[in-house]
Amino acid sequence: MVVGSDLAEMSPVELSKFRLNKIGFVFQAYNLIPVLTAKENVEYPLLLQKVSKKELENRSTELLEKVGLKDHMNKRPTQMSGGQQQRVAVARALATKPEMILADEPTANLDSQTGELLIELFRQLNEDYKTTFVMASHDPEVISQAKRVVRLKDGRVML
């Protein structure tokens, strides 16, 4: 059961809808859609949700401002640094107001300063939007910020 839903019982379409509406993803390698600008990447899941044009505009602008990319909205991923791309990915993950964000090594490809800023951003968003962040990380700085830590070794939970 994830966020109140039994994933094993869902069809591929239902799983897609579940991911769209309930889960946000932040990947280690940013994974933005390369042919879309920063703003369009944030808007993409909202377009799938068929959100109105006005709300789409407001939400994408607000989120990009929040992650400090107000001046980079129309840049494509290749025109942005790794840190900027990761912040776009965070904005995209938050766009649909998911109940949970899964973040896989979100700071792994960032320098320490950008990594700290990103974690600070997660904490702030957790407070503002009450979004749960589930992160996989090797970074002690990231782990130290977590409210709950589950350690894994060779695929097993360490007690």
Binding site: L20, F25, P34, Q49, R92
Partner: peptide, 16 residues
């Protein structure tokens, strides 16, 4: 392939 995987992870349905 990665891009399609990403789009599907974001909620793009097989039909889309």
């Amino acid at each position: 392939i990665r891009e399609f995987g990403l789009m599907m992870a974001l909620g793009t349905t097989p039909g889309q």
